[in-house]
Each structure stands twice: as structure tokens, then as C-alpha cells.
């Protein structure tokens, strides 16, 4: 299925949960490594860490994976 990850369209295997997807991120998209510290939004809504096990990905989903960055 197709999803958008950080603005980039990627084709991935169907996973039951976000936890499963993150565990296989390297295989799904070798260009993006799973960072140690990150936060997630799915279709514009924040997904808390404890919800990764209960959240699934669907065709066309927009996933944002944000990391700490410099800011003013």
C-alpha cells in the first residue's frame, strides 16, 4: 500500500500497527533510519508513544515523524 512519510510517497507492506511498521522501517525505506528520539503525527493528529501498538496504517495515510531540531 502507499503512504506518505514526511512528505514523501512510499510503498510499504501492510502492517497491523505502527510499532510493526517502525520495527521494519529500515527494510521498507532504507533511506530513512528510525531516530532514537521522535514523535509521530498521523493524518495531522498526534499519536502518543503508548498508542503505537493500537494504531494502524491505511492506504493514503500521511505519517509525520519529527525529531529535535534547532529553533528560535
Amino acid at each position: 500500500m502507499n503512504i506518505t512519510l514526511n512528505g514523501k510517497n512510499i510503498k510499504i507492506t501492510q502492517y497491523k500497527t505502527l510499532t510493526d511498521f517502525f520495527a521494519n522501517l529500515k527494510e521498507e525505506n532504507s533511506a530513512l533510519q528510525l531516530p532514537k528520539q521522535f514523535a509521530v503525527a498521523l493524518n495531522g493528529n498526534f499519536v502518543p508513544r503508548e498508542q503505537y501498538d493500537k494504531s494502524s496504517l491505511r492506504e493514503g495515510d500521511e505519517l509525520e515523524l519529527l525529531v529535535p531540531m534547532q529553533g528560535g
Binding site: F38, L65, V67
Partner: peptide
């Protein structure tokens, strides 16, 4: 002050 940005596809700047 700090910010949040998309993880780059080519590095580990966030870390």
C-alpha cells in the same frame, strides 16, 4: 528554545 522538524532522509541531525 528548540524546534521539531521532519527527520531527514539522509542523516541523523536530530540525534
Amino acid at each position: 528554545t528548540v524546534s521539531l522538524r521532519r527527520q531527514a532522509f539522509d542523516g541523523a541531525a536530530g540525534e
